[in-house]
Design a protein around this nucleic acid. Sequence first.
DNA 1: CAGTTTCTGAGGTACGTAAATCAGAAAATC
DNA 2: GATTTTCTGATTTACGTACCTCAGAAACTG
Lengths: 341, 341
Amino acid sequence: MKPTVHDIARSAGVSLATVDRVLNGRPGVRHVTRERVEQAISSLGYVRDVAAANLAKGRTYSFVFVLPNYDNSFMIGIRDEVHAAISRSGAERTQIRIVEVPPFDAAALADALNHIVPDRPDGVAFVAVEGLEVHAAVAGLKDAGIAVVTLVSDLPGSERDHFAGIDNHAAGRTAANLLGRFTGGRDGRIAVIAGSMLVRDHRERLEGFLAVMGESFARLDVLPVMEARDNPALTAEVVSAALGRYPDIIGLYSLGAGNRGMLHALREVAREARPVVVAHELTATTRAALSHDLIDAVLNQDAGHEVRSAIRVLKGKVEGLSVIAAQERIRIDIFLKDNMP
Amino acid sequence: MKPTVHDIARSAGVSLATVDRVLNGRPGVRHVTRERVEQAISSLGYVRDVAAANLAKGRTYSFVFVLPNYDNSFMIGIRDEVHAAISRSGAERTQIRIVEVPPFDAAALADALNHIVPDRPDGVAFVAVEGLEVHAAVAGLKDAGIAVVTLVSDLPGSERDHFAGIDNHAAGRTAANLLGRFTGGRDGRIAVIAGSMLVRDHRERLEGFLAVMGESFARLDVLPVMEARDNPALTAEVVSAALGRYPDIIGLYSLGAGNRGMLHALREVAREARPVVVAHELTATTRAALSHDLIDAVLNQDAGHEVRSAIRVLKGKVEGLSVIAAQERIRIDIFLKDNMP
DNA sequence: CAGTTTCTGAGGTACGTAAATCAGAAAATC
DNA sequence: GATTTTCTGATTTACGTACCTCAGAAACTG
């Protein structure tokens, strides 16, 4: 059956201690001996029994999740999922801590990350905000040998090990494709409402959206993006104003988290005059709007999947294991009212 | 830190052996003592360390996957995923065996399931075909204490523990919704091509499709479903004939696995006269067709997710553990050319 | 060649649980 | 009251790995 360290020791003609030294990269093994052991390992197809190893080590992985204390439904969902993971953590030999930081604040985020280093956790997951200080903080974490994963929002060019989130550019393209087709050949204007162009996700979504609009739906006239900082009242106002000013708005793309406000504005429009609406993130709000035909499609990233994936990847990094790539790719879910989960 | 059996023994004032008897339902414990131990377990919040337990037991889970030797891309994908799981199984204390059966053959499937019982595996996953003998076979497996999961195609009303697959009714509804909207207000006919109405998945998809077509898109005239047993040549012929006979076909729903044949027929139609096409399962074929605008949307069930989910659920059943419901729900993925993974 | 350093082997303990054996206590039976 | 049965406790071994100590061998150093 499955070969053990004992089998390797016997096969290589060395003692168990030497095998252990080779396996765990400890010093005190001559080069030739090390090679003999490695030869035996690969020829027997030995794989370390992670469960037994963890038991022996008594190791519990310690991870820190740095999350913005931003109270939109999606971020609340992320926090809930982390808490769910924490409640399961007993059985999974993981200890997870949440650190909250103010949203959209690179300095505060970098500060929080820097403060984590002395605790020497095994891994850190955080929602990235762009900024040189954040890049530096990531480098600091990596220098301390801490695994780093970005969550929801990425930090390309940094030393992070992995990004657990969606391709926002592709999400924007998908939104454009849906909106273009759902408007069904009619001409008209398209309004885009965003939170802030300072946030990478929103910017990327817009880029993708505009690209496809230009390529495939030239008949549609995309209005300049409206930024309303995901604030419900402001969003409602801005959307209302746009709909009033341009009666030929036949499509609306809400790429941020301002859905509540947007819906408020939409309800004031007569049913048959309502534009086609594509929004992001399946929450109680968007779910209800989907079933009442106020929103036509919702693009979603599965918060549970993202959080679980981040944890799996962190564990994998710590153990030096490979991950199942397909399992860790976060999909851009499209929900119509008929395929809501 | 995490309480162990030793802590419980101490807290309940009994020996380790007694705790073990209670934990593993072994006889030889007085009622009052058992209660004292259970009290200690719940008050300390003890959870058994599954890794340590498996190590001690030396247990390896043995599962059997019963799959049709049906060579469409999707089933090949399922088999590949099972093989991938097998190759990982060393590290996961699982031993997985594949049994192949002829497709759409209830008697052969039941026979295969019955033959598995004497091997006494811990769990069985199979692609269901309807039939009384299959229900009986499932009952036989359950009587033998074997966990049973249906994969891709369900067997409602049977004693199976879980279904790892999508809601095909909802998939059909989603297809109708997409097709209805993508045809953009135009009138015309819709053609539906299926494998066989004898297969539950196909039947359910059609039901859902027709329901939404009737509810929301009365302007579209759905032609009687064409069955071509997922045979490429036959499918091509049937689709070609339909497109020739009804020039006003503006939408096509391929709910089975006959995509290759359907695409062959579609390529003979001038680009601008092509209908809107919704198909199932993201394979190399449909993926290419999506990027070349031959297919407009693909509904997909993630084979990898289904297989991994089936294994997780089987393990959970054997261990008497609960599963993360959200993680085990197989989504109906919608892929446009922009959000293909 | 004695002394030092580097390598290797042997052996043990530990992790948390399962499972077995054996002995003693309590309860039931004769 | 002696015997049997049922319950309970104590103790031990095992699973596969990690990690520690100690001793001795081999290889270098001066």
